[in-house]
Amino acid sequence: MSDPEQHPVLRVEDLTIRTGDRAGERDLVRGVSFAVGTGERVGIIGESGSGKTLTCLAAAGLLPDGLTMTGSIAVRGSDRDLVSAGERELARLRGELVGMVFQEPMTALDPTMRVGRQVAEAIRLHARRTSAAGGTRRVRGADPRVLALLAETGLDDPDRVARAHPHQLSGGQRQRVVLAMALAGRPGLLVCDEPTTALDVTVQARVLDLIDRRAREVGAAVLFISHDLAVVASLCDRVLVLYRGELVEQGPTVQVLTDPQHDHTRRLLADSDLTGPMLDGGPVR
């Protein structure tokens, strides 16, 4: 594993995100700095409203409307600072340099479009950039690249899935499709925002395994948000703890979870049910 400070895939410095409403301005994220190294898995934990989702959306170039940010966010492969980049520049590096998997798979796909075309769109956007020959414009479900990508995400019957509409797939299947699209451009960083929270318990473990395996195959670093410490413990090398918009603690997973320094981390640990084997074994790799 490389030293994150030397070859970071993502470097966030002094990131502050604020909202301006009638009641005045309010900081939602305050002065957060961290880096993610090549192939590294970094978890972000914290309670609801701690700013972890906003930080990750900002890193993926998807800051919601109505919010402003200061500081700097650098992604490897682009010399632009994401904080000051416009929507066009951000769009160019989304999917290409940073892929993202969201919390709610049921609503994450366009309900009116066949899954194959949605995946093909991700492939095409990537192909258009890397080579002039982007392949056929209208890609039907039978596109071999789409099928290959779907097969790689462990979908049993890629041909059927490609021809299906989202509502015909289960939550787990949809999340696999979203993952396939997120990795279509072989980005250096995969941001996952509680990707298994909305799934059945039995499916959760398999999707986690898949994220772990696919990220390694593609060579992507992972920035993983979760409130489930067990999941973070099993997947991540390093953990950041956010509390009320500030980064209160960070360090190797085992260290933070076994010897927490900050009160809030201790409380999170106390509230969660970290049973033996997960922690004893350290990150399951």
Binding site: L62, R88, A91, R94, G95, A108, D110, P111, E121
Partner: peptide, 24 residues
């Protein structure tokens, strides 16, 4: 949500609305 996913793939906000939002 799906518009955010589509943007995460690399479409701009306008492209996302035109290619996916309008049809929906």
């Amino acid at each position: 949500d799906y518009l955010r996913t589509v943007r995460a793939k690399g479409l701009t906000r306008t492209q996302a609305v035109l290619r996916h939002g309008l049809r929906n």
